[in-house]
Design a protein around this nucleic acid. Structure first.
Lengths: 230, 230
DNA sequence: AATAAATTGTGTTTTTAAACATTAATTTCA
DNA sequence: TGAAATTAATGTTTAAAAACACAATTTATT
């Protein structure tokens, strides 16, 4: 079996990992895999979903284009996890775009095969429901913080979000994801200038340390405080 | 059968309407109904869901409290439709509160009975998935517009949203929902003063007409233009 | 009906963050 | 390697919306 597909199916983080060998076989025989270089687009707003995309390795940002082309990152995907599954299950075209922020591999599972599997596997279906429901909660919370918190609060929250999503290096401090200042800004609903400015304020205050795109979270308690204060 | 329950189950807008008579019976025998006066709270952020709440009659706003108690309306519910189902299916406590904005009646279906029904009814389960996925798309889009559009754009969008949700009176223009200026503001991510001010600008421009809490959308084309422009 | 309470309306001030402008530092790649 | 392109950094100006203050009106309550 393709290594990338095997990872999407068997990895402990995959909802497919508890399937029977037979079910896994059906999936692996009805999927196609692809590689994306850093910066490449996986799908664009308006495209029609062709199947269920699973991120096998790498990191992907999901973003929407808003007023005047300004982008807002609505989700950061990590392996193993689905991307673009919302549109597939809503029966809609994509309302956001997906771009690899580092070299990534994905597998696309056939839609009909998947739905057939769901029909006979209740717990798999419930785990889809659970994911959608959790993500909806996250999105609602995000709406409120992005609209109500001030710049410092929004940035602090984003940094903590990145930590909880991608984790940290062995030193326990360095974020395991390297974003451009522009991406940090697009995640936090601010201009690039303001992201740069506020990051360097945090750095001067000793809450974080900056080294190019490497960000160390030195004082997560303080970041939490800044985030909660708004 | 209780009139309120019957409506939740049989109404053509209900996902339960296509169930078998037997399934409908099981549901109706395992539900309890309640009435809420305008202004009463149905559940609060942090509460634990006890079952699936269905709005039988009336109108309900779902909102989150943000920085400094400032509230953001994340959804407006209409009959027949579920409220609080996100938390139930995510297996979480409520992350938002629900308040009747006019006299309302609801039915609460037993959680275990419901899950049992889902297990044996794939199309019902898929309609839940579809709802969650659609609402997630709506929420993501909302995040972008609330953060990126300017006040006029946000208000115009909210007015159009209210029209698409609750419709209009026989005159084809008057919104079929009466919100306080504060609620309009909390829906549109702005202060009450700004909601009042911007509504009266729209009124002066002839795009809408105001009569107390009654709002007539006189020029929806223009509202669309204002909304799209940001 | 009288009073209190809540909501609506409007002007003014202040704050925040966007927009703009420019320079410096990195990357990219021809 | 060196020029071009991209990204990062920082100061200044401008615009948007919040905060504040207060008056007017409407709604609820006794």
């Amino acid at each position: 079996m393709d290594k990338r597909a095997a990872n999407c199916i068997d990895n402990e983080r995959s909802v497919f990992s508890t399937l029977t060998a037979e079910e896994k076989n059906i999936l692996s025989e009805n999927c196609s895999c692809a590689n994306y270089k850093k910066g490449e687009i996986i799908y664009k707003e308006g495209d029609k979903p062709t199947g269920l995309i699973c991120l096998s390795t790498g990191k992907v940002k999901i973003y929407k284009e808003g007023v005047g082309g300004r982008e807002q990152i609505v989700r950061m995907a990590k392996p193993v996890g689905f991307i673009g599954y919302r549109a597939l299950f809503a029966g809609e075209n994509y309302i956001a775009s997906a771009q690899a922020i580092e070299d990534s591999t994905v597998c696309i599972f056939d839609k009909e095969i998947l739905f057939g599997l769901l029909k006979s596997n209740f717990s798999l279906t419930m785990s889809i429901i659970q994911s959608l429901a959790s993500e909806l909660g996250f999105s609602n919370s995000r709406t409120v913080t992005l609209t109500q918190k001030h710049i410092r609060g929004r940035l602090a929250e984003s940094l903590l979000f990145l930590k909880s999503t991608y984790g940290v290096e062995e030193d326990g401090e360095t974020l395991k994801v390297y974003l451009s200042r522009e991406d940090v800004a697009n995640l936090s609903n601010m201009t690039t200038s303001n992201a740069i400015r506020t990051l360097s304020s945090f750095s001067q205050e000793g809450v974080i340390a900056l080294n190019g795109r490497k960000i160390k979270l030195l004082d997560t308690k303080m970041l939490n405080k800044i985030s909660e204060l708004g």
